[in-house]
Design a binder for these strands. Structure first.
Lengths: 220, 220
DNA sequence: ACCTGAACACCGTTCAAGT
DNA sequence: ACCTGAACACCGTTCAAGT
């Protein structure tokens, strides 16, 4: 076997790489939200001219694809033959949610994007396999997948991770006239709390999975 | 009783109104998506200088609030004492989804916004009332509300109403290597179809409601 | 009171140029 | 091969001015 040649480059080595750029972009989004990422600001952050980035990414959209991948490194793969499929569904979607939760700005930016990286495809393949082998028809398996996916990304997009922002919501709701909105005013703490935390995500996830389990091969 | 004076204005009557501006903005969003609405383009559409709009809305964000209200005129109010609460939930959230479905660009733009108009608050009040009177604890009622709300807006944000766009998704998924992704390739038509239609929304909604119904006053 | 026009501080991206 | 700088066609919003 021949040893792969290390290419002997002449000129100076590149100042940038795709990974480095994507990581810096993710930092900007996490810190300042959707609007904090501009090609100009990103370039300045990297100490480089704006157009240098375009050597690595043809458009901002292509950059965001890379950022999305960088943001989800640790999501665990589904085990299609897990003994308890409901438990397995709970595990993998909770895991996905935990990863999304860390990057709310990105989730809002990329909501409509259908995943297309190999890892994302493998993940989808695994979930579908789990669902079809768990007594579902193909129709039902895909419907279940779409419901779970929608709920997870929807929750992540809505989530208000910042405790101070949640406190503001609570205050605003509590200040409403109690006679007109007794339920809202009475539930203001819960309404604010449910905007945020992973336990709240799991509340709905568990119930959705339970509902998927009971309405199975019914004929229409 | 004294007759209210009709104010005798001298100068020409205003060329614009809040409603007229909001309606034009909604048209732009519906036709061209999130990015199609700019203050400049909107003003041109109305045949007026850009800054004329700022006489009616202090910022673009304030304009979007008005647009959101204009977009949801026909959403039916919940009946808190409906005989069958599961059926009632299905009815009102399907109704909400149908309204959202018509304006996907707007949904994506305003995902994080917590409703604050009187009509939106009354709607929330009604749903909470329905849920608390239907055997739920306050905790559970609010958790159920949040789950349903998340699912509905999430689905609307993901929805690909355009049939041609769905056809593209199907084609892309079908073109994947069948050996590596048998489930995805085999389910490509269903995966594309579930991106779109109201029946698919109702598939998950029914199951979520069923799950909410069975996991009731469990301790813990 | 209502509308206009110029200006400021931003965008993403193209293009020609430098080394 | 990799980076730069100027330029183009856009943004939202401020400010001073017109009638």
């Amino acid at each position: 076997m021949q040893r792969a040649e290390t290419p002997q480059r002449r000129g100076p080595r590149p100042m940038l790489s795709r990974d480095e750029i994507a990581a810096a972009a993710l930092d900007l989004i996490d810190e300042g939200g959707v609007d904090a990422l501009s090609m100009r600001v990103l370039a300045a952050q990297l100490g480089v001219a704006t157009m240098a980035i375009y050597r690595y990414f043809a458009t901002k959209d292509e950059l965001l694809d890379a950022v999305t991948e960088a943001a989800l490194p640790g999501v665990t793969m589904p085990r299609p033959h897990a003994p308890d499929w409901q438990k397995e569904l709970g595990r993998i979607f909770t895991d996905l949610y935990r990863a999304l939760e860390r990057h709310p700005g990105l989730v809002r930016m990329r909501l409509e994007a259908v995943p297309k990286t190999p890892r994302a495809l493998a993940w989808t393949e695994g979930v579908l396999s789990l669902l079809t082998s768990a007594l579902f028809s193909r129709e039902e398996a895909v419907g279940a997948y779409r419901s779970l996916y929608t709920y997870t990304f929807g929750f992540a997009a809505f989530a208000t991770a910042d405790a101070r922002a949640r406190a503001n919501v609570r205050k605003r709701l509590s200040a409403l006239p109690r006679e007109t909105y007794p339920e809202i005013v009475g539930s203001a703490p819960e309404l604010a709390r449910t905007l945020g935390t992973a336990p709240q995500f799991e509340f709905g996830l568990r119930r959705l999975i339970a509902g998927l389990a009971i309405t199975q091969p019914t004929t229409t």
